[in-house]
Amino acid sequence: MYEHIAEAIKEPDVVAVPPGAVCLRFETMKIYSALGAVRHLLDTGQITPGDTLVDSSSGIYAHALALACHRYGMKCHIVGSTTVDRTLRVQLEILGATLEQVRPSQNLRLDQNLRVRRIAELLREKPDYHWMRQYHDSIHYLGYRDVADLVQKEVPEGPLSLVGAVGTGASTGAIATYLREAGRDVNLVGIQPFGSVTFGAEHVQDPDMIIAGIGSSIPFDNVRQELYDRIHWVNFDYAMSGAVELLRASGIFAGLSAGAAYLATLAERERDDSRTYVFIAADTGHRYVDSAYANHAQAHGLGSMRPHEVTSCADLSHPWSAMPWPPPRDDITHSYADSSVLLAETVR
Rank of each mutant, 00 (worst) to 15 (best):
A97H: 06
Q192C: 13
E125V: 08
R115G: 03
D85C: 10
D85L: 12
K126S: 13
I78Q: 01
V102T: 12
P156Q: 04
E181P: 03
G143M: 10
L123T: 02
G80R: 05
P193Q: 07
L108D: 02
L108A: 13
P127N: 08
L95G: 03
L110M: 11
T87P: 08
P193K: 11
L179Y: 06
N107V: 04
V189L: 10
P156T: 04
A165D: 00
H77F: 12
P193I: 03
V102R: 03
V189R: 09
R109H: 14
G183E: 04
V147H: 08
S138N: 09
F194Q: 00
R124G: 03
L150P: 01
G183H: 07
A174L: 06
V116C: 12
E93T: 13
I119N: 01
P193M: 08
I94R: 12
R145A: 14
V155T: 03
T172I: 15
D185V: 12
R86I: 13
D146L: 15
L162A: 09
L188P: 00
E100P: 03
L95E: 02
T98S: 14
I78P: 00
L95P: 00
A120C: 09
L108F: 12
L108V: 12
V163T: 05
E100T: 10
Q112D: 01
V84N: 02
I175F: 04
E100C: 06
L88D: 07
E100G: 05
K153R: 15
D137A: 10
S171V: 12
R180M: 09
V147L: 11
R86T: 13
W131M: 09
D146N: 11
L99E: 01
D146V: 15
D137F: 10
E100W: 00
H130A: 11
D185P: 06
Y144W: 10
M132V: 06
L160Y: 05
A148R: 05
R89W: 06
W131Y: 14
K75P: 00
N107R: 14
T82A: 14
V90K: 12
G164V: 12
P159D: 09
H140K: 10
I175L: 07
